Amino acid sequence: MSTQRVVGQTAAAGFQIGVRRTLSLPQEEAWALLLSPQGRKLWLGEITNVEFSKGSTFETVEGHCGEFRVVKPLEQLRLIWQPAGWLDASTLQIRLLPTAHAGKTTISFHQEKLDNAERREVMKTHWEDVIAGLQAMADNGFTS
């Protein structure tokens, strides 16, 4: 007899969520947008100094903290991310995926090790809002 899981529940890592959207930016510009002060404020929080390198730690004005585990320029960020008020950290992966259409890049947010289905839904809405914000910046002529 197997235990039935709900949407987003994994066998070993709690709950997960993935959100993606294609932006009308080439990969280099999408990467620059993601790491720009305005872009990173959307997904990381308010932070003045942050080093995007493996092993670098951070803490935002809001109290979010974490550590970068993987940094592949133009392609991927993987980090341990613990928002203020959370008892446990989660794993956040951001990928930039080239598309078959020139000048477009798919941005993907994947978060795992979430506590429960309710937190998964909250984070789904959060990442959808983040991507919508990035899309708005791209549509309004962001240049690196």
Rank of each mutant, 00 (worst) to 15 (best):
61 V>S: 11
100 A>W: 01
26 P>D: 13
20 R>D: 13
54 K>L: 01
40 R>I: 07
117 A>E: 10
90 S>V: 11
67 E>F: 00
127 W>I: 08
116 N>D: 15
6 V>F: 09
111 Q>S: 12
6 V>S: 15
53 S>A: 10
48 T>H: 14
132 A>V: 10
105 T>A: 05
50 V>A: 07
72 K>G: 05
85 G>P: 06
103 G>D: 00
92 L>I: 10
80 I>L: 06
51 E>S: 09
88 D>Q: 14
141 G>Q: 04
79 L>M: 15
104 K>M: 10
63 G>L: 03
119 R>V: 14
103 G>K: 00
81 W>A: 07
75 E>Q: 13
129 D>S: 13
17 I>F: 03
38 Q>V: 14
60 T>A: 06
52 F>I: 07
20 R>V: 04
96 L>W: 05
72 K>V: 15
123 M>Y: 12
123 M>S: 06
132 A>K: 14
62 E>A: 14
50 V>H: 02
35 L>F: 09
51 E>W: 01
39 G>D: 03
58 F>A: 06
133 G>W: 08
34 L>W: 11
37 P>C: 08
15 F>G: 02
71 V>K: 01
70 V>A: 02
96 L>T: 03
113 K>G: 07
53 S>N: 02
26 P>V: 06
42 L>K: 10
129 D>G: 14
42 L>R: 09
65 C>A: 15
36 S>P: 05
136 A>Y: 14
60 T>F: 01
49 N>D: 15
130 V>R: 07
3 T>I: 13
1 M>A: 12
69 R>V: 10
123 M>C: 08
20 R>I: 01
48 T>A: 15
74 L>I: 05
123 M>A: 07
66 G>V: 02
52 F>K: 05
27 Q>I: 13
111 Q>T: 08
43 W>F: 12
108 S>C: 13
22 T>C: 10
114 L>V: 09
63 G>I: 04
7 V>G: 00
100 A>K: 10
87 L>E: 15
56 S>M: 00
17 I>S: 04
87 L>I: 08
92 L>S: 09
31 W>P: 06
98 P>D: 08
7 V>W: 09
48 T>G: 15
125 T>S: 14
82 Q>A: 08
50 V>S: 03
108 S>F: 09
56 S>I: 00
